[in-house]
């Protein structure tokens, strides 16, 4: 099957198109724009997690990278007076370096052992940020993170929205191309059978580290976007929920593809907000839990697997369930 640019474009295009036209029919409603912006950021975050999962390495602590990206970018803007557009790639690269280090630690770990160790990293980094580095980060009080555009600018929230769309779109495209490249192939091979891959000459450690670097780069990017969008960051960003969200998104959407991650993030967020807007209280958590269980029960390959064989719709969202843990 040819894996050319047209295929890629065909897969990302609907998403971008939807993103671009979304604010228009609603007359630039601030509420919808905010909603959509946060949604695109979580799509990117989920896709970054997904990239690592492709290599069979399941992170339970992606908040470590999300939060660190946000902090580094905010610090660069505040203390080095950089524009957020410059600081974000820098912060993402720094996060990727940290990710590489953590990847090195995790190299020999598999399955649950990897999961639990990664689970611990946000806790360790949170302690550092809130306590050891409080002179820099403001500790538990948090610190302001400057917006992408000054709110004094006319129509700045529209600018902000399209900037986030452009960055997320570009990042998703890169992730998609990477997972369709030789690297992605090798990663899926490793996930299927590490030993066999090694025998066939794939240097599994190198590839696994590379997966860590790429995933944490984009995780950091998502975090820095989120930080600059929210305008303020505090150590609460490292909480467990931040780590668990992308897992829920990707498992529900379908592992192994950018489209699956996007589908999951969108479907889960919409379902969740719909339940909330119905005015349900705790019942909605119970209902949500049951919905998750039912989805997995009847679509163990995620929602994307249901779309397989519907080429006119989302041909490239093909939930490859390559990963195996344990």
């Amino acid at each position: 099957m040819p894996d050319g640019i047209p295929r890629v474009a065909a897969s990302i295009a609907p998403l971008l198109l939807a993103a671009a036209i979304l604010p228009l029919p609603f007359g630039g409603s601030a509420h919808l724009i905010r909603y959509a912006t946060l949604l695109w950021i979580s799509v990117l975050y989920a896709a970054s997690w997904n990239f690592l999962a492709q290599s069979g390495q399941v992170s339970f602590g992606h908040a470590a990278f999300f939060g660190t990206g946000a902090y580094i970018s905010a610090l660069l803007v505040r203390d080095a007076a950089l524009s957020p557009f410059v600081s974000m790639p820098l912060a993402s690269s720094a996060t990727a370096l940290i990710g590489l280090g953590i990847g090195l630690i995790c190299l020999r770990l598999t399955a649950w052992f990897l999961a639990m160790v990664t689970f611990g990293f946000p806790i360790i980094i949170q302690t550092l940020m809130a306590y050891q580095l409080s002179w820099l980060t403001g500790g538990w009080d948090g610190m302001p993170s400057f917006r992408l555009f000054s709110p004094a600018m006319p129509l700045y929230h529209i600018w902000e929205y399209y900037s986030v769309c452009a960055i997320v779109g570009l990042a998703l495209l890169t992730l998609h191309l990477l997972s369709r490249s030789r690297l992605g192939l090798a990663l899926r091979g490793i996930a299927q059978n590490e030993l066999a891959s090694r025998v066939s000459g794939i240097g599994s450690y190198r590839y696994k580290l590379l997966a860590f670097a790429v995933s944490t780069f984009f995780g950091g990017l998502a975090g820095s976007l989120h930080g600059h969008y929210m305008g303020y960051i505090s150590p609460e960003i490292y909480e467990v929920g931040t780590s668990l969200n992308p897992i829920i998104f990707c498992v529900i959407g379908g592992l192994g593809s950018v489209g699956g991650a996007a589908l999951g993030a969108i479907a889960v967020t919409l379902a969740w907000d719909l339940l909330r807007s119905l005015g349900l209280m705790w019942e909605r958590f119970i209902l949500f839990g049951i919905l998750l269980i039912l989805t997995i029960r009847f679509a163990p390959g995620g929602l994307a697997s249901l779309l397989r064989g519907w080429p006119p719709l989302l041909g490239s969202i093909r939930g490859g369930r390559g990963e195996r843990m344990g």
Binding site: M1, A267, F298, A299, L303, L306, L307, R308, G309, W310, P311, G315
Partner: peptide
Amino acid sequence: MTQRRAVTKLQAIALLAI
């Protein structure tokens, strides 16, 4: 698309639900 699978009833219902 190389493999064009028939969509099961279940998948159709799930899709409809979404």
